[in-house]
Amino acid sequence: MLKESKYPYFLVLPSLIFLILLTIYPLFYALYYSFHYWVIGSPVIFIGLDNYYFVLTNPLFINSLIITLKFSGIVVAIQLLLGLAIALGVSGIKRGQGLICALLIMPMSVAPVIAGIIFRYLYFKGTGVVHYFLSLLGIPLPPEGILGNPDTAFWGLVVTDVWEWTPFISLIILASLLSVPSDIVEAARVDGASSVKIFRHITLPLIKPTLFIAAMLRFMQAYNTFDIVYVETGGGPGTTTQTLSHYLFYEGLVYYRLGYASALTLIIFLIAIVVINIYLKFTIFRGGE
């Protein structure tokens, strides 16, 4: 390896300075107000760690944490598996692969807010296409509509997120599938190995790093899901779909409980870092990147 010890730092410097400037102030701002009581029209009162206590003992927070982790875990799992299936399918198609890729990238290019609005329109009882077709197929649907029923609303959001991001994941997986050296695969096939064996022992280990990274990136995005919740369910029915981001939005930008929201932000961030670290350790031990 070439050794120029100062060189890499210069390369990293521009982006680093930029990002430091963009994160220092918000970090201190949030830190400062997290120790104070402050709502609109009130004086700023120092209350120490009270905000943190209020957040951690608030059943709404616990609820949204559980829902967020549940949601993120489920959508990432579905997107990985489905994405893998799609990537495997597309990888075998010779003609029109480029066109298919271009088509598949389209759901991702729909802003999440817009996707939420679209799916809300699709889920409408009676007049929404999804609801209509599901009822034609004889699938029992709750009378309050898909988004109005506490059990199905969550899955309605899951479907929206899966729709938006699965193609993207599948393209990433497709990329790594295509980078599997074809000569090894050919050699194995010549030796008489079945497709399944080839996949398990050759392909899968090679694409594992990509899978882990894709899962991680997606999890980080899903953890901060806000747009679709805001538009499709408003966190409801009740609080059955309230994600952390949505909860934070309300505390910070609707109620403007700025002190409380600052503490909440930091807690959300810390939890995310912990989860990701656990994930990284887990995947490193399993022979990932």
């Binding site: 009130s42 109005g148 409801g236 009740g238 109620y255």
Partner: peptide, 22 residues
């Protein structure tokens, strides 16, 4: 009152839960 939105949020949740029969 400045606290209105917080209280409205609380009401909204419980009313909605009651409406859903939970």
């Amino acid at each position: 009152i400045p606290l209105y939105f917080t209280l409205e949020g609380i009401l909204g949740r419980y009313l909605n839960d009651a409406m859903a029969g939970r």
